[in-house]
Design a protein around this nucleic acid. Sequence first.
DNA 1: GATAAACTGGACCTTTTTGATCCTGTTACT
DNA 2: AGTAACAGGATCAAAAAGGTCCAGTTTATC
Lengths: 161, 161
Amino acid sequence: MRLTRAGEYAVRAVLYLCSKEAHQVVGRLEIAREMEIPAPFLAKIAQQLARAGIVEIVQGSRGGVKLRVSPREVNLLNVVEAVEGEIFLNDCIMDPLSCRRSPFCSVYRVWNKARNQLRQCLAEASFSSLLAEGLCELPPKVKQKDGTYGLEKGNHGSILL
Amino acid sequence: MRLTRAGEYAVRAVLYLCSKEAHQVVGRLEIAREMEIPAPFLAKIAQQLARAGIVEIVQGSRGGVKLRVSPREVNLLNVVEAVEGEIFLNDCIMDPLSCRRSPFCSVYRVWNKARNQLRQCLAEASFSSLLAEGLCELPPKVKQKDGTYGLEKGNHGSILL
DNA sequence: GATAAACTGGACCTTTTTGATCCTGTTACT
DNA sequence: AGTAACAGGATCAAAAAGGTCCAGTTTATC
């Protein structure tokens, strides 16, 4: 009942991209370094985010990843479900046939409510709102000329979840 | 991000016990048979429920499991957390030190809200209310002389999640 | 056009978790 | 005393999580 590392890394990566200028291509190694994500693993995660239409992967020299949607249009639910698959909480909701009584079961109804509530909560958290709240930094945010928010080169973990 | 089999079985087992008369000792094999739970696995689960104070295990001949609390006093959250451990949804909430910025992180705050909401939802679902809503059966419930609700011998899955 | 930088997709690997089973010992009813 | 039933630890297989590696391909730049 918990978010996987892949899900966590995906959120970090998208958060980093959102802190950059729109449609800017960012190298995989840069994201991995700044957000403390294992670089080869990030490659897999980026592919899943690309399949979900959240990012676009640019091949070749000077390639990398760029955001395909605006930070206002993407939320925690999108990103988490892109890498973890749809959230169901339990088997009888994922596959109602796994339990013959599902539609009539009071327990089923509670889980279904819990699931809807959880997905709603994550869907309400757009990345623009997450960034607006301070980017997870201790010092007050300062917009810098490269478009990032107070991220020094080599300052690992300035944006961390 | 889903309930384990152990969690599902625990809910089934407690639901079955709640459908019996108060403090009635029910054999492990009976519960396993009626609720379609692997019997040796149920032994483990019953021990966890006992450690959590939800049931009491009666040893010796004619032994088994009995409820230690009333169906009004036990809810889905109690039972699920008894076998799965406390629900956290993600690592940074389980262990705030795993991420240096947790208290200042907007993402952390969203997950925390989601977690509280989920636990609240499960906590509101007492077993007495779950039973009141119909015990997951298709036919209207009929109280029988053995204290169960419409469970015929060998009618597997009359109470299913 | 050659080279180097960078991603692709699949294969592979290790560790942890899940989902059990089994066996010896103990408890308690008859 | 005998037997029914649980305790608790050891064990085990399958699946998922978490990652790594490599041969191949794409693209910018010299």
